[in-house]
Structures are given as C-alpha cells and as structure tokens.
C-alpha cells in the first residue's frame, strides 16, 4: 500500500558501529525514516505528552462554565489569546476541553486495543493448540464477528445493557480481536511446523511455556504491527459512537463527543467541532502511517 513512502536506504556506513559518532547516527536515523513518518512520530509524541500532562497543560478547568464568554471565536477568527481556540455554547474553553478529550479518547483506544490483542492472541493460540472442534468453534466465531458490522453490534449491546465508561471500553475491546486471533492462530500453527516449538515440547515443556515463552516472543513484532493498525480504527469507532451521543457520556468528554455537541453550532461557531475533527483525522493518519512503516520494516508479508 504505502511501500513507496519508504525509499531505499542508503548503504549504512561503518556497519560495525565502531566509528559511529553521534552525528552520523543521527543521519542514519533520518535516512531510515521518510519525512512523513517523522511528522507522524512527532504528532504521536505530542499526543502522548497531552495524554500524560493534560490537566497541567490546560489553561482552564475543562468543565468551568463562563456564560459571559459564550461562543468566543478563536485566535485565527479574530478572537483573543484569552481563549486560543475559542469557547463553546456554555463559555467553556475549547482548548482545555480538547486536551482532556484527547486524553480520554487515546486512553480508551489504547486499553481497548490491549483487550482486543489479549483476547485475540489467547483465542488464536487456543485454536492452534487444541485444533479439532475447539478450533472450528473459534473460527466460526471469527467468521460471525467479521460478518457483522461492529458498529451495529456495539449499538445493540449499549441498548440492552446501558452505558458506563468501563462497559464501553470493554466493548471497544471486542473490536478487531478476530483479525488478531486469525493472525495469532496462523503464526502459532507455522511456529509449530518449525523446529523450535516442537523441540521445546520434546524437552517436556508445558503448553504455557511453549506458547508464552517461545512462540509469543517470536511472533510479537507481527502482533504489534497489527495492533498498531487496529488502534486508529478503534479511535474512529469510539469517536463515531460518542458523536452519536452513545459513547463517552458527559460530564466526561471525548473527541467524538465534542464534535457531536459542536454540530448544533455549525453555523454560528464551527470552531467547536473543527478542532476535535482535525485532531481525530491527524491522529488516525499518523498512527496509520507509523503502522504501515512498521509493517514494511518488520513483516512485508502482512496485509
């Protein structure tokens, strides 16, 4: 797909590494990474800083209402520096809300991806180890999940069980597990074909040891790549549900949530929804670029 964004590397000078000084190492670093990847990494770095320090960076309390400052325009629409990104319909500072929303959205996406990976790897290994009927059942679950748009499943679950932050995060964790399970199963099966897993079994190792200590580390890079590619999709899903008002609930705020409430002011105050929209697009774009780059780096066969 985006293989072309990764130009052929320059032959690395002094492969032994002994004559590397800091400057040439820096050069190698930049040569190995095309500018788009560097920009993507920089953006993700910025997002991580926001996740870590959002309350410190925010100029105001993200819940603080100031009715006298309602719908103040941002700097680039002749607003003042008091509220750089303007204010919303209740006079809350958009920048502060944006920072907190980034934090919530990314933390939810991260936890959900972790859940999906754990679930997917466990079930994939389970299928590869037991084969036979257990494997058929898991493959059927994978097919069933892949056949139904996840958004619909998520909406149904939210309708039947109501909404809470924990339930919502766990629910998002069911997104993409089937792809990771499929990959994990395939890789575990091929590891079993290779000698090292069989050899460890022949030593008398338990399945836990074979799968946990040998197969998992050997296939980790491919799994990390597929997790990276899952991550932006979870962000899109979470923001979509929150946009519909069925995801993260007020007073908490997420990126999709901000866009959802901002759309009522699309005519009078478009900045309320534009800033979070831009962050969603840039973040998913950046992670996708990094994911593609990692995939080309580690495992060109994975699609």
């Amino acid at each position: 797909m985006s293989v072309e964004t990764f130009p052929d590397e320059e032959p690395r000078h002094g492969s032994g590494g002994s004559v590397h000084n800091a400057k040439s190492r820096l050069k190698v670093f930049f040569e190995a990474r095309p500018p788009t990847v560097l920009l993507a990494l920089a953006w993700i770095g910025l997002m991580l800083i926001v996740v870590a320090f959002a309350p410190l960076l925010a100029p105001y309390d993200y819940l603080a209402i100031s009715l006298s400052d309602r719908l103040a325009p941002p700097v680039f629409l002749d607003g003042g520096w008091v509220h750089p990104l303007g204010t919303d319909e209740l006079g809350r500072d958009v920048l502060s809300r944006l920072l907190m929303s980034i934090r919530i959205s990314i933390v939810i996406a991260f936890l959900s991806t972790l859940i999906a990976a754990t679930l997917g790897v466990s079930l994939g290994f389970f299928a590869a180890y037991f084969r036979g009927r257990a494997e058929q059942v898991i493959l059927m679950m994978i097919d069933a999940q892949a056949a139904m748009p996840f958004m619909i499943i998520a909406l149904a679950v939210l309708a039947f069980f109501g909404n809470s932050l924990v339930l919502f995060t766990v629910l998002m964790g069911f997104y993409g597990w089937e792809r990771i399970a499929r990959i994990a199963r395939g890789l575990a099966l091929s590891a079993n074909e290779q000698g090292y897993a069989t050899a460890v079994r022949d030593l008398g190792a338990s399945p836990w040891r074979i799968y946990g200590r040998h197969i998992l580390p050997n296939i980790a890079s491919t799994l990390i790549v597929s997790m990276t590619l899952n991550f932006p999709e979870v962000i899109l899903l979470e923001s979509g549900l929150s946009f519909l008002g069925l995801g993260v609930q007020p007073p908490l705020s997420s990126l999709g949530n901000m866009v959802g409430y901002g759309r009522d002011y699309i005519q009078s105050a478009p900045w309320i929804m534009l800033a979070p929209s831009l962050v969603i697009v840039l973040t998913t774009l950046a992670i996708s670029i990094i994911g593609d780059w990692l995939r080309d780096l580690f495992d060109p066969t994975l699609r």
Partner: peptide
C-alpha cells in the same frame, strides 16, 4: 537441523 530446533530470540 540445529538452527531450526533453537529459539532465535533466546
């Protein structure tokens, strides 16, 4: 095949 019977990551 000794290489195949060893874990490359350990």
């Amino acid at each position: 095949d000794p290489l195949g019977a060893l874990d490359r990551r350990l």
